[in-house]
Design a protein around this nucleic acid. Structure first.
Lengths: 196, 196
DNA sequence: CCCGACTTACTGACTGGTCAGTTAAGAGGC
DNA sequence: GCCTCTTAACTGACCAGTCAGTAAGTCGGG
């Protein structure tokens, strides 16, 4: 299959999922969001489930790539993670919290989904814990348990996404609370990483 | 309608929702979990939507009642909230995180659901903020912004439920992190409220 | 004390519509 | 002429909701 065609179907899936939710997601509606018919989509993906697996893979992969930046400074690296997680509604990944929540709610009935979310959670917690460990070792952060800080950030991220979907609340509301908590633990003040 | 019949239908809805998810929830499956036929359920509730609204009302009402205890001690009151939110799998309300997540994921497409979740979030944040305010005023807690503490706890609660569903993680994992954060802010050590 | 009228709670059979997935018949580039 | 891709038309399964009919109970009148 053409990479462009694949991207178009996955993109149409994202729009259809955000607009109608998982329960209202049909192959016809994905087709409506693309330039193809539902039969064309079945030509490229044998089953709806196969398409959804590919979609979740793509979604997580794109998100993981946003967690890292080239910088060495732990504060800048932590800032990059917070940007990715509590990102303002950027035009490229708009609807990300909705799409991911719709799929998360299916995890109990979809072993493959659950595995991917578990894997991704491990990656994200690892990234944060590494940053904290490096920052503490370099004397840039106060002493703190890296695993515990990672768990705080990821759980707050999960909460922010749930709130964005269920309460239509902007994730930045949560970012402020997380930054305050990090300041208490790491002596880290928001924005300081970028300025000096 | 008989209160007992209503309770049976709502209970069957809970089981069917947890077992099949929102997307797989059909009136037939609710009927299968009860002692009635699907036509009998339509006799009591005109539409599936009406039944789901009643179910969510009941779910939230039962949860709100668990947030308060008779005690006056702020530490005991905060402990009660944490018990309700990060409750171990008790036989009575088992599947609560799953049921509530399935419905939360529908909030963007269901204005009535969204309104109820917003209302409930306000109640919960109010309960926590009141406890913190009282505790600070009584000198039992260190100085802290009640609204910010309330937002931390509710967002961590949202995150814990999302993780329980998507990662099959026990909410108690999150409780530990929340208690550590509260200790930092309020000088509150877990269990101290119960002992003296 | 019993009878007919009415109500409540329910059933099994059904309907119109929608779903995922299939199939056969091409269109258009190489 | 073949291969990739797309289409319209279709199938069988399943959905929410309807409907006619039934069984059990309530209640006022004689």
């Amino acid at each position: 299959m053409d990479g462009e065609t694949r991207a178009e179907i996955l993109d149409a899936t994202n729009r259809a999922l955000c607009e109608h939710g998982y329960a209202g997601l049909t192959v016809q509606r994905i087709a409506d969001e693309s330039s193809m018919t539902s039969a064309a989509i079945h030509y490229h993906f044998d089953t709806k489930e196969e398409l959804l697996n590919a979609f979740l893979d793509d979604l997580i992969e794109r998100f993981e790539s946003k967690l890292s930046c080239g910088a060495a400074d732990p504060r800048k690296r932590l800032d990059t993670v917070l940007d990715a997680v509590f990102s303002p509604k950027d035009p490229e990944s708009d609807g990300f919290p909705v799409a991911i929540m719709e799929l998360k709610a299916q995890a109990p009935y979809h072993e493959l989904f659950r595995e991917r979310f578990l894997d991704f959670d491990g990656v994200m917690r690892g990234v944060v814990a590494d940053i904290v460990r490096d920052g503490v070792a370099a004397g840039r952060f106060d002493e703190a348990d890296p695993e515990e800080v990672a768990r705080l950030i990821t759980t707050m991220s999960n909460g922010a996404h749930a709130r964005a979907v269920a309460l239509d609340e902007h994730p930045a509301e949560t970012r402020r609370i997380v930054e305050d908590a990090l300041e208490l633990r790491l002596g880290w003040t928001p924005g300081e990483g970028a300025d000096g």
